[in-house]
Design a protein around this nucleic acid. Structure first.
Lengths: 214, 214
DNA sequence: CACAGCTTTGAACGTCGTTCAAGCGATTTT
DNA sequence: AAAATCGCTTGAACGACGTTCAAAGCTGTG
């Protein structure tokens, strides 16, 4: 049973080293030989713990998702009221969505390389369950405010809308931080996110209202 | 002057070949040796025409931008009316934005590999002017409907908002077509885009209205 | 001490983008 | 016509990469 213990030590050491490299230089800076030297093992030993570097990257990405999960959990969002939400409750829910989006921007700016690795990384096979499950948890954070904004939506529709809202925010952050498309200062980008997400919130409420009259 | 002519032939042959490969297999399938064999030249000759493969990819991407430009130009959008826009004009402008967003989705679905190459490709240096200029042209398409929706916005603000709108749409399309985050059927994804972009349109109008009363 | 079943090792393999001394052909000079 | 010059083309070679696997090392057991 000693070998299992060593493997576990090696595993965390590798993930630690890979995380550090990705955080510093991004995915492009990750090299099997450097990792081996850092953790003090042979190149081949890496492949006794991970099938390939992709799997190692995926593990680092899971850590990043966890970190983001803890970050986003600190954003306080209102509770879902019983019965039909008031105008004030809906305004508060929209502000919650804006806060969540801004938290996403802040996270991407504070951990740019690790955040990029989440999306930059393209694998040919489908991601494993434990990865998808962590992703799913994050979307549920958005569903709370959405339930206040659009109480008439059933659960699958709401889940879909939550993903779309995340996607739109991700686009804003992703291209906003990308030097290639546009270089925006943090306050400007932040204001754009506030504008668009707030518009979505108001627009969704307006749609629900117009559907009531039908 | 004969060498200049040959270089030009070689150049277009290389771009043609690279475009075909990218369209078929994506950026990952691009190989200098294969290109050389396809166009019938030595490996080194490629580097007499392009400084590196990145420059070649950038040229292919410019073609893709042009193709998208022609595609998006076929989307009919309303003209900008003189004076304060009516409620109907604003609704029409919102529909224009939705049509543009859906056209973006359609383009991404019809040319998935070439479209991916536009963003997947990461270069260390800033893109050249001729590339940025083509990008800028595309944003102006969005500014027309925006001018109807938000007539109180000055030009720089409107340009900023146009980029944000594109970014949000890009996020929806990008993650919607990405198998990693969620696999959505075309009609579902299309409906999500219509929902979110329409909500943004309505929300922007609502903001303008609320600001009028101040 | 010998043997068997493991883990670990790192040289080697195949592939990639990129380079550059050598070769070649056209043009100019003697 | 022969020789010299110049610039373009060539593809073997370079260095770096992820990954593999025969060999070496290790550890527990008879």
């Amino acid at each position: 049973m000693r070998t299992e213990e060593r493997r576990e030590h090696l595993r965390t050491a590798l993930v630690d080293a890979a995380e550090a490299v990705i955080d510093r230089e991004g995915l492009a800076g990750l090299r099997a030989r450097d990792l081996a030297q850092t953790v003090g093992c042979a190149i081949g030993t890496i492949y006794t713990v991970f099938p390939d570097l992709d799997a190692l990257i995926l593990t680092v990405n899971l850590r990043t998702l966890h970190l983001f999960d803890r970050t986003i959990a600190q954003v306080r969002t209102g509770s879902v009221p019983a019965g039909a939400p008031s105008r004030a409750a809906r305004a508060a829910a929209t502000e919650d969505l804006v806060r969540l989006a801004v938290a996403y921007l802040r996270f991407a700016r504070e951990h740019p390389m690790r955040w990029r690795a989440l999306f930059q990384h393209r694998r040919e096979t489908a991601p494993p369950d434990w990865y998808l499950r962590e992703q799913g948890r994050l979307f549920r954070t958005i569903e709370g405010p959405l339930q206040v904004l659009c109480p008439r939506l059933d659960e699958p529709e709401r889940a879909l809308l939550a993903r779309s809202l995340f996607s739109a925010t991700h686009g804003l952050v992703s291209l906003g931080l990308d030097e290639k498309l546009m270089t925006l200062s943090e306050p400007v980008l932040r204001r754009q996110i506030e504008t668009v997400v707030a518009a979505i919130g108001r627009g969704l409420v307006a749609r629900e209202s117009s559907q009531e009259s039908h």
